[in-house]
Write a protein that binds this DNA or RNA. Structure first.
Lengths: 341, 341
DNA sequence: AAAAGTTACGAAAACGGTTTCGTGTTAATA
DNA sequence: TATTAACACGAAACCGTTTTCGTAACTTTT
């Protein structure tokens, strides 16, 4: 057991002052070569490393980033997180992660905990409850205190900060037009309750595509699934009682559930009914047929978010740079669940 | 923009000493009620919160836990992580996460970064490369410095520390016996190269079950898939050229790939060939038929690991408690990919 | 030889807290 | 009235760094 060695220890052992040790290790030319060599050798031998906490206190920056996400067991968020971690790490930052579990209170409490010195900035995707309550005072207060925040995916216009979002609307339109170009006319949408801004955008994109091609909107073809309930029955009922030849789902779980149900009802995917989902995750890759899906490029989103944050934190400008919003272009990955020409 | 307020600020404003403020806020009875009230009111008004970094420096503990995992986009690890985060949070700890990406160097560098004061202890699952190299000096050094470590899932006997593992062998035996009890005789195993201790244990469990029922081991029925390559062809070839009526896969991706290939080859699952996978993740739940699978109870593992670590960190005993290994009992979840009596 | 400049180092403040100990003032006791 | 105890607070050390500034001891310049 050899506890960590400090500057003070080195100073005592070598009979010099703490300042001298500090300077020697930073290669200051104030210190003679002789002394520097002695100190460096000693430090190396005892594997001296400066204490991060002391540095943080001194420099008033921790080189820690706080990441707050609603859920970790979720493909999209994990990929975003990987992007964040990768970029942050390459820039010498560590990542402290908090899971809000879709709860407003947890989001608030966790952020306040971290804000008291533990981190230099936040990257955040809003919890469902926060979006529902539409209460963002905790974010405003942090911004007020000068703590930078970057929002991604689940964002809000109420907060002025850097943001990274997906072009949900555009890609939804593109997805639906992919159906249309293959001859589909009765195109359904399966979505979630739309206090999620992303669901909303996706729905708008869907409607836009129909409009573009003069297809009348049939509200019966839009299924809004409640949170948490068993969806299988609702989906089964949905397909049994309607004529549908294509369906866009706002996530891959819905998509793969649909596929399974559709196949059990005796339809062929993609010939009778085509399917497109969101999130190019593991489910989409290993279903059969493989799912045509919207790749959200989570890792890219994460990298962009981290870059926004670090740029702002490290900016030495007196003027705060204007807030930017980066729109990541989603990609439609065409696979077996659609007819691709 | 109202920057964070410090004890010094309060002291200056109220014309008392810093010590008085500190004591007042801690409700010390050294301070008169009058003064306490004034100080508390002021602190509350300005939303004073003590600076975590200063506390960490003073107390020489950060209340941060470092978690190092090989991959984050991975169901098992995310569930473990959720367990860790949940327990740690409830005990007032934050979690700093580093992804080793299966790389020895990243594991070493990240841990050394964090060890210089940023965290009080580690929870770790070894990277593939670390297991391959069998080099654990970085862990030994940290333990030497008095930093506690808890290993989970991918552990090693070389290191004396608390551990949390799954009873991989036993549950594999159970899984294979589930095949046998349904009449299967030609039971295959699809596994990974076995520098992973878990794969090894699972293989042993498989062999044990065959032995228990006097079924001869056929090495041809064991398929070891190399890391990273395209597995589809290998699996297809495997099933085309062998008589197989059941297959145990060491993860759910292999399992669902098998299922897909088996079905394409015209066999029925589970009647012609039964399948069991490891990891009760999203793939197992949404395949059709649903996969019979080994639930690893990642969240429980995470909670246990965090509890081990925090117990040790907070222990005031002078004597170090002996190291413990907690074995989590996996559960076989019987679903549609096997014949269940 | 006096003045000026270098060199090589140490003292001390600062970051933001906690805590021990000392002390002036008042109240209780002898 | 002198002594002691209780009260209420402040000074200072400490956690481990960095950094500014001061200064002895030489060296160089004139």
């Amino acid at each position: 057991m050899k506890p960590k060695i400090t500057l003070k220890d080195i100073a005592r052992e070598l009979d010099v002052s703490i300042s001298t040790v500090s300077k020697a290790l930073k290669n200051s030319k104030e210190i003679s070569k002789d002394t520097k060599d002695r100190i460096k050798a000693f430090a190396k031998f005892y594997n001296y490393r400066p204490n991060n906490i002391a540095l943080s206190l001194k420099n008033r920056r921790t080189k820690n980033i706080g990441v707050v996400i609603p859920d970790i067991v979720h493909h999209f968020f994990t990929t975003v997180f990987r992007g964040i971690e990768k970029y942050a790490n390459s820039m010498g930052y560590n990542v402290i992660i908090c899971i809000s579990d879709e709860s407003f209170d947890k989001e608030v409490i966790n952020m306040e905990m971290l804000a008291n010195g533990s981190i230099d900035g936040f990257i955040l995707s809003l919890s469902a409850e926060t979006q529902l309550k539409n209460d963002f005072t905790h974010l405003k207060e942090l911004l007020d205190q000068g703590i930078p925040i970057v929002l991604f995916d689940r964002v809000t216009e109420e907060i002025a900060c850097d943001k990274v979002v997906l072009n949900d609307g555009v890609i939804s339109t593109e997805a639906v037009e992919h159906f249309i170009s293959a001859g589909s006319k009765k195109i359904a949408l399966i979505t979630t309750e739309d206090f999620f801004n992303v669901s909303e955008s996706r729905k708008e994109g869907y409607l836009q595509a129909l409009k573009n091609h003069n297809i009348e909107v049939d509200e019966n073809l839009i299924l809004t699934l409640p949170h948490g309930l068993d969806h299988a029955n609702l989906i089964t009922e949905f397909f049994q009682n309607r004529e549908i030849d294509a369906v866009l789902c706002v996530n891959e779980i819905f998509a793969v559930q649909c596929m399974s149900i559709i196949q059990h009802l005796g339809y062929n995917v993609p010939n009778d009914i085509s399917i497109i989902g969101f999130t190019d995750g593991i489910l989409s890759k290993y279903s059969s047929p493989k799912l045509t899906t919207v790749a959200q490029h989570g890792e890219t989103m994460g990298e962009n978010a981290a870059k926004f944050l670090i740029d702002r934190m490290e900016s030495t400008e007196m003027e705060e740079a204007p807030f930017k919003t980066k729109v990541i272009d989603a990609t439609l990955i065409k696979r077996g669940s659609t007819i691709n020409k």
